[in-house]
Write a protein that binds this DNA or RNA. Structure first.
Lengths: 187, 187
DNA sequence: AAAGCCATGTAACCAGTTACATGATTCT
DNA sequence: AGAATCATGTAACTGGTTACATGGCTTT
């Protein structure tokens, strides 16, 4: 079977507890939103394939209000596959900052436009920072309850740091641009 | 024609000076590597389409050593399209930190493995930081020669800040994990 | 009444990558 | 001798998204 990151995200989450596809989507959104995303279009086919490969097993829970819940549990085989993947070096980070493409060609635009892009970037990061802080607070009291929580905390700390830094950069960039614009005497 | 980011990266670069497809690849690698990437598989078809749409024009320069250089120049129509795109709000940032997927499931791996992933992340960021610093230095003396340089500088400052923050996080995370591991008495 | 949550799944699409083909020149 | 740079381009692939279909329950 294909060696996609989606596969290992699913396997990793199931290594903590059995879940449905719907739960997986929610978990990724809650705990990994800063650095990863996953769609149902990936989740359901991946679960199907993992089951066919005996890396997970399915248990159908009858649900009278809507479709039956299909709860998946990781197998020993699945756990081993996960551990093999964990031992491989990670690929380098991929970033897509669309607003930086707009900013780097800022000499072709009205100065206010550039300020606007930076302000919006700042706002996005403030929102992320807030979410991260709340998550961190919710995690602190239960840190020693579960070994896994410690690793979640580490990833949150990076998200927090980067969004804080991004906000600081934005404030500075706004000042720099305003100075620059007033010097040039532009509108 | 399709509304891809590749199109506007090409248009943006050509708004500064005429270039070949090969030059565009190099320019992106030099000036935008931190937050964007582009492949020949995108560049050449994009140039073809942009020319068909009269947003750029082609001039063939005879080259006796290998294929002829096709130098593209932006048209007024192309410039307008670029400016319209610049005025639209940017999509939110997309990040793919594969190593954080490995780290967040770190309770399923040997502790040394987690340390290794963090060290490698740190090393990647040190390399980026060095490149950014050199680029910044090369830009400073020519800042007022060209309005465009100012915007390039702003993007570099963000790349610098984020890689510096990432390195600091890595140092802290390494300490935290080592403490944590010695408490647990794990191998 | 409407929005949002729970819960499953597929088909079509799309952005972007990789591998390949070609080949001379220049640097180490 | 071998690697890197210059320079063009295409076909196949792939990772991931979007839109759609279905429908009851709960909250505002």
């Amino acid at each position: 079977m294909k060696d996609t990151n989606a596969k290992y995200v699913v396997l990793g989450l199931l290594s903590h507890s059995p879940m449905t596809g719907y739960d997986i989507k929610k978990s990724v959104a809650q705990r990994m939103s800063y650095f990863w995303d996953i769609s149902y279009g990936q989740i359901y086919p991946t679960l199907k394939e993992l089951e066919e490969n005996e890396q997970i097993t399915k248990k159908v829970e009858v649900n009278e209000h809507g479709p039956n819940r299909k709860v998946y549990t990781i197998t020993d085989k699945g756990l081993k596959e996960l551990q093999i993947w964990l031992a491989k070096p990670a690929k380098k980070e991929v970033h897509k900052y669309e607003f930086l493409i707009k900013l780097i060609f800022g000499d072709q635009a009205y100065p206010e436009l550039n300020l606007k892009h930076i302000q919006e970037f700042k706002a996005r990061n403030q929102k992320i920072l807030q979410t991260m802080k709340l998550f961190e607070e919710s995690l602190k009291p239960i840190l020693n309850q579960n070994e896994g929580h410690y690793y979640v905390l580490l990833t949150i700390l990076l998200g927090k740091s980067i969004s804080q830094t991004s906000i600081k950069w934005a404030d500075n960039a706004l000042k720099m641009l305003q100075d620059h614009n007033s010097k040039e005497g532009k509108t």
